[in-house]
Design a protein around this nucleic acid. Sequence first.
RNA 1: UCCCCAGUAGCUCAGUCGGCAGAGCGAGUGGCUGUUAACCACUAAGUCCGCGGUUCGAGUCCGUGCUGGGGAGCCA
Length: 460
Amino acid sequence: MNRTKINILLKAAAPDDNVLLKGWVRTRRDSKDFSFMEINDGSCLKNIQVIADSDLNNYEAVKKITTGSAVAVTGSLIESPGRGQKWEIKAQNVEIISIAPDSYPLQKKRHTDEFLRTIAHLRPRTNKYGAGFRIRSELSFAIHRFFKEKGFKYIHSPIITGSDCEGAGELFRVTTFDRGVPQSQEKQPGYTEDFFGAETYLTVSGQLAAEMFALALGDVYTFGPTFRAENSNTRRHVAEFWMVEPEMAFCDINGNMDLGEEMIKYLVACLLEECPEDIELFARFVDKKLMAVLDNIVKSDFVRIDYAEAIDILKKTKRKFEFPVKFGTDLQTEHERFLTEHYFKKPVIVINYPKTIKPFYMRLNDDDRTVAAMDVLVPGIGEIIGGSQREERFDVLQARMQATGVDPQNYWWYLDSRKYGTAPHSGFGLGFERLLMLVTGISNIRDVIPFPRTPGNIEF
RNA sequence: UCCCCAGUAGCUCAGUCGGCAGAGCGAGUGGCUGUUAACCACUAAGUCCGCGGUUCGAGUCCGUGCUGGGGAGCCA
């Protein structure tokens, strides 16, 4: 007999006198002539209650089953006479697969996130983290579904790279040398003797690769791991995270904003539809305002304003900011959050930033002082999407590279795309973990990634 | 990297003015019970984060290091 997963059992329409379930014991309570066991197999948030009668031939062993133990139960799915659940299992046989010793760290009570981080290998067995990682899985598939429905092609951009892409953040070096790159007498790095014969890093973005493929396949996206060696220590940063990066040919900044807004709404609506129980756990125990936030995202139109307008709003408000507001400086976290959380109280897309604070590949506007950049800001998180229309004009791009200290020779292949059949195109990057934080209300990014990598932390 | 806060039983925490190390939960044992993070009783469980200092005496005060959290910067 094949095992039936608990999410299927709990959705049963009728009793079934012959089922097999396998899972882990969340709690066990003894009664006079039988024992109650709550079993969870990870297929859904809910446990199923098993009644183990004292006439089971191994009842003495069953009474020693502990929290965390693995069991296989054959029996009947019957309507529960007790309150609190519709269905339960009357066991005919309880096979004890393994007993968890009393050192099992997960107790039948709430633990702090900080403690659970120290047992990251066990935390998916808790309700909250199980729900979080089921949502992570659903959200991944929803992203692929969204792009597939819109006719995008999925591109696997390289993880090992020879270019530092947009010069975003510190890079992790990749080498086969035992102790890093050897230095010769003249202090010249010996990269030529290394595996690739050149300096090599872990990627910080798949954007440049995606651009090349957008100019061939039309609409494409990447969805994969990226790496930053920044010594960032905040609840919003990790060294290894996943990014979604769509790139569209023949698309300007407006089409880019449309896609970003449509995508976020689609993904939130999907989760509300497909993971209502898991989302509800977060709405009840993690963030009381979660449902209102998600509802707001799905129903309201995102505000679209110019960077210059944003600066005006920030200057006019009575609110005091730690950092001064003036045209030409980037918006600080406090500014972004003021705009989206207090002023507009919904997602905001800010466009047309000064060129001086944005990278070379963003398209120069006609005013010659701003670029067609866009940031999507959401309540609670701040910036969740950063993107732009790309500079498709060869001469302008080359000039912008030189102006920002990027050597065009290192990007000859990127410039080639502007030489041969160049066309307007746009794209953006969305931090997958930040999106997860938004939809779950989880406030620390380390809690939405299975084994988070942060400075000084690589235990698991 | 900078600023602020914290570190006491397996977990969550209290510990007053510097004077015998505590509670709840969890665990173990026993009892009771169609129970719902059950309930009742008993038992075990401590490098008070490390190092140094002040003091007759330090969980408590001082210095320093480490770890964790929050905020900032960098960014997604």
